[in-house]
Design a protein around this nucleic acid. Sequence first.
DNA 1: TCTGGGGTCCTAGGACCC
DNA 2: TCTGGGGTCCTAGGACCC
Length: 420
Amino acid sequence: MSTTGPTILHADLDAFYASVEQLLQPALRGRPIAVGGSDRGGVVLAASYEAKAHGVQGGMAGWKAAQLCPGLTFVRGSFHRYQAIADDVMAILGDVTPLVQRISIDEAFLDVSGSTHLFGPPAAIAALLRERVRTEVGLPISVGAARTKHLAKIASQVAKPDGLVVVEPDDERDFLDPLPVGLIWGVGPVTKQRLADRGIHTIGDLARTERSAMERYLGHATGGTLHSLAHNEDPRRVSTSTRARSVGAQSAVGRRPATPELVREVLSHLAERVAGRLRAKDHAGRTVTVRVRFLAMRSVTRALTLPGPVSATLTLTEVAERLVWQAIDEEESERPEITLLGISVSKLTSQAAIQLELPLPPPDPWRPGSETGAARWVLDRSVDAARERFGRSAVGYLPAAMGRGAGVPEEFRELAEKDL
DNA sequence: TCTGGGGTCCTAGGACCC
DNA sequence: TCTGGGGTCCTAGGACCC
């Protein structure tokens, strides 16, 4: 007999982008729609439940979605609106407890164990939140309530669309056992297939499998975690703060030969985005990783860890350029075609710390804090300041080379890079 | 005329140090 | 006189999540 109740909630807006579009454009309500980056082609970023019923999913190529769902309406996303609307929802969640852990733009965990004396039992709190989001924002939100984060998350998935599922402690086993393993957080297509190959389809099947066997099938970490979750052991607390471990940006370029001009132009733009975001947070990072994607989605990465942290745009551009050519030069063909370039910076430290210990020469562009590095950083900061006063495009380059067709709108990138 | 962009975490092998 | 083991850091690739 358990002593704690279902005090963890997982609240998850249903088909968020698509639901917002149906809210903003009443003519779209009840109809299958796909929210995309562009009006034609491209990729489906979100599908309404009416479209999901035909098999349309996020990440799917637009033409394939249209094939699956005749009558599908493509809607260009109103990306500049989504953040504020989701923030309104989070504010409602925050009204019942300060213990809200937002894990993406449209979902959050809540610990309501300290809120029951004010708002009643967790099931009542969940119902209240759903009602308020529906009437005050106009969106459907599903909520799962359970003893652990893992169970609450599964419960909200089961509740969708627009539902509430409460798992009482005494019912946990009965709830979990028949569910497919794919509902477990961390089980994607590959793991699901590996498990299916061994006749493991449900969480109950998983719970009956030895831990050591799981670790053999899936590796130490994944196997161990899955075994624990299937046995309903999830010690994670709801935590309100997490710090970023990396900052990155990438851009699809269509399908183009890797010329020096293209590589430099795209990397300059990406480095500007990444370094600018680092500086805005007073951060810098030591490890620079680039990604180059070739045809058939084959991508390679190259990384370099520098002696000190960087956040200067030009330095980042130069390091990235060197790494990208390292990868391209290893290709068999002379001038291979590429479809995407990306830059990510990790091993982050706070910029304030390095400014204090500015080592003096020898000047070395690879070494931030050297004369060159410091000068570049100072220049970048003045550009940042001008941008802040006069707008993003006032100073420096526009995303020129990003070219026709391939990319996603600027507002989508800005939405994706927001801190939660 | 397939397949966006932002992340996290894990694994495995090699270098290097004691 | 050719031999151990542990720890840490780095790189590359991959699975997964929203």
